[in-house]
């Protein structure tokens, strides 16, 4: 082609699509990591979301073992390091990312790293940023990353109120984690 007309594509051909870790059977040996990646620790929004997730998942897998991981975005935790540290201790990872765009992007990134490590990962976000979460997941090559959107807004809500709000969406979470039997 004429080099005066041929254009060089300035965009990165970023990656090939990643494979999504499949859903699992709700059996008793499951180990579930519940990750609070929210910025606002004092209002305990992330913990409220995770309370609802734990209640929902434990009702379907009664012997599952849950553990909480508290990440402080201010410390800039690197997912390649902390996800690797959970290997062998998690088959499922639920990442609560709050309703902050930065936290959501990081939560999605962390979930993608977990998925790459063979862990079934799901992001909990609010409706306000759910579209962003999916867009970011797509840019990471994982457009089907499970994202569960919780009704906004979280402002002014206590941990218990956030948990009650999140509970309304937890059937969706369970559907994205467990194979229907």
């Amino acid at each position: 082609m004429d080099p005066e007309v041929e254009l060089v594509n300035p965009t990165a051909k970023v990656f090939s699509y990643r494979d999504l870790v499949p859903r699992v059977l709700a059996h008793h040996q499951l180990q579930v990591s519940l990750v609070d990646g929210t910025l606002n620790k004092s209002s305990l929004w992330g913990q409220g979301m995770l309370d609802a997730a734990e209640a929902s998942l434990s009702s379907r897998a009664s012997l599952a073992v849950f553990r909480r991981i508290d990440l402080n975005p201010l410390d800039n935790p690197q997912p390649d390091l902390w996800v690797a540290a959970t290997l062998g201790e998690s088959q499922i990872m639920i990442v609560a990312a709050g309703d902050c765009i930065t936290c959501t992007t990081r939560g999605v990134r962390d979930a993608v790293y977990a998925n790459d490590a063979g862990i079934l990962a799901v992001c909990l976000v609010t409706g306000a940023v759910a579209e962003i979460a999916t867009a970011v997941a797509t840019r990471y090559g994982l457009p089907d990353l499970p994202v569960v959107a919780i009704r906004t807004s979280l402002f002014g809500k206590s941990r218990e109120e956030v948990s009650r709000t999140a509970a309304a969406e937890m059937d969706s979470l369970a559907d994205q984690v467990f194979i229907r039997q």
Binding site: V8, P10, T11, A12, V14, V136, R139, Y140
Partner: peptide
């Protein structure tokens, strides 16, 4: 390597954007 995409910024890609 540029985040968040993790894409590799080659000289050619940077040059194309510099032209633009």
């Amino acid at each position: 390597t540029m985040q968040p995409s993790g894409a590799r910024a080659t000289r050619e890609l940077i040059a194309a954007n510099s032209v633009m």
